[in-house]
Design a protein around this nucleic acid. Structure first.
Lengths: 338, 338
DNA sequence: GTGAAAGCGCTAACAA
DNA sequence: TTGTTAGCGCTTTCAC
């Protein structure tokens, strides 16, 4: 980092010019073997490392993509499962991933990094129905793809779980098993208020499907911890003793939920059925293992990165929209109502 | 991104020189209010966004730090809990976090990004006892801190959980509760073979403490999934029917472990005790909630970022070494042996 | 208080 | 096959 050799140093030592060194490195020009030898040797001897900052300044490509996620979800929780798959996929395509937390509030500074040329494109997480980041990115002509969806998605690329489908499937399954009193344990109230797409969509889809079956649903926002799950469940059970099924959108409270059920003397799945929308990992960590619409974090992350990279490479210019519909996997937490 | 205005454009429009614009922005020189006005207005009108790539080229600071983690742990699992806290902390200090997966195998390309001046410093995760990345970073004079430890840590900064302490504590607790046949469910065999610090240290500390009590321990590597947990437990129980306690180092198999126990007709904690070294979130997701040395992901990540930033800002030049010793939190998965 | 000009380390025309 | 040179968009020294 300190006084590192530059191309001119290599050139001097190899007895050629700067550009020859550059071309040797990039291979964009035929170079005689003799010269190649000398250049490589000089680089070796001096321990040369190209300065990609300088390179990026002229090529206008950094090979870095940003992952933008709201600052308030620093406890990203399960969402963080996206991160590793996006990063892995980006790496495979020769890109590095820059994590960039943007306070949704401060529109000005949000993109500080974005526009300054540090990134070639962006992936948005936790997209709200009306997300200021979307407009900003569009205005700045930064290529981006969303994990999640905006309200109005024409001409925008995204990858999302089809939450409408996920909740229809879950509700229908439970209803077919004879359940009539079903509750949706949704994400925290904060996320709902902020209008985060999947939180709103899940709730709406839940009620829509319940109505379709002539049933009245109950929904409830739950903070992402054990305790909150316990309390929410206890309260719900007190208020509506007829409840026989829960749909869980968030994993952290599930321990508390199961404990509350057990403490009430209710058995799973004999007395109460549980259906989750989790990653398979998490769905199988509880006892009993949860029936679940397995959330395809891995696939979604990979696809998101793929789509962005294609866009950056000019392979795909049209918007790509992917909605995934993984099947319901029946495990041990659900069964017929009796 | 496309034809964005540069400083010279602002200068022209404001009727001043390039350098005046630069100084107006940086505030490193007194500028008359009249000029300031004109400059700001011009920036406003043209929608100016400074190009930080160019800036970084001259200042030699990108305000980006890299998080290096081995490519093979793309399913970083719980380790990913570090990522969000590191990112949040970095953001607070004005740095962005660049995720960089380095194949431990290919020493050459590992640091591709590092040396090229794109990053000011690095945080290493999943540090092996003999980690090639450490030597590379040292050779390149890139400031770094480790989450985890090297074999030889003189003059190097790190933050780590004190696994010796964690295992001593766990074993001692179980022994005091009367358990004599204790097994350690460790991370996957691959991690152990690669010599990842905490995996090796945990195993060694486990046997050391068992020996201290005149006991013979059993350890077992387990892949990070439900099924592996089930099988490992079933096999262990068949081979050593006297086992009455498990220490769990990795969360994903725990569902399978609990199910295997239940299927054998063993109750927790009446017949078998479980002690985990997890994040509190995960420890409380199972039923019963796990007694655990709560893994301080949040704190470790925050501290790691803090230490690196201090180093980058020249506040702290000496190496800082932090070893955390969180207490054992007794929950419902453990009790006296009988 | 402001301006002129020399780089930062590289890429890529343009020439030979 | 190789050399020369003009930038990329900014910071900062040196002058005024």
């Amino acid at each position: 980092m300190k006084n590192s050799p530059k191309m001119s140093d290599i050139a001097k030592r190899a007895g050629v010019t700067l550009s020859t060194v550059s071309y040797t490195l990039s291979g964009k020009r035929p170079i005689s073997d003799a010269v190649k030898q000398k250049v490589y040797q000089a680089m070796e001897e001096l321990g040369y490392q190209p300065n990609s900052l300088a390179r990026a300044l002229v090529t206008k490509r950094t090979r870095i993509i940003a992952l933008l996620y709201p600052a308030w979800s620093s406890k990203l929780g399960p969402q963080s499962e996206f991160i590793t798959s996006i990063a892995a996929s980006a790496t495979d395509h020769g890109y590095a991933l820059l994590l960039w937390t943007s306070p949704l509030t401060d529109d000005e500074k949000v993109m500080d990094m974005t526009h300054q040329g540090f990134i070639d494109g962006a992936i948005l997480m936790e997209v709200a129905l009306h997300d200021p980041r979307v407009e900003l990115l569009q205005k700045q002509h930064v290529p981006f793809v969303m994990i999640g969806r905006y309200a109005e998605n024409a001409d925008m690329s995204f990858v999302d779980l089809d939450f409408d489908y996920a909740l229809e499937t879950s509700v229908r399954y439970l209803v077919e098993e004879g359940h009539r009193h079903i509750v949706l344990i949704n994400q925290s109230a904060e996320l709902l208020e902020r209008g985060i797409g999947y939180v709103v969509r899940s709730r709406d889809a839940f009620y829509r499907e319940m109505q379709k079956h002539g049933l009245q649903g109950i929904d409830c926002c739950c903070e992402a911890n054990d305790q909150a799950g316990y309390e929410a469940t206890t309260n719900l059970l007190n208020d509506h003793p007829a409840i026989s099924a829960f749909i869980l959108m968030t994993p952290w409270p599930s321990g508390g939920i199961i404990r509350a059920l057990t403490d009430k003397g209710l058995r799973i799945p004999e007395d109460v059925s549980l259906v989750a929308i989790f990653s398979p990992h998490l769905a199988q960590m509880t006892m009993p293992a949860l029936t679940s619409v397995d959330f395809p974090f891995e696939e979604m992350g990979r696809l998101g990165a793929q789509i962005l990279v294609d866009k950056l490479n000019g392979i795909e210019t049209a918007a790509r929209q992917v909605l995934l519909t993984p099947p319901l996997t029946i495990r041990s937490s659900s069964g017929p109502h009796r």
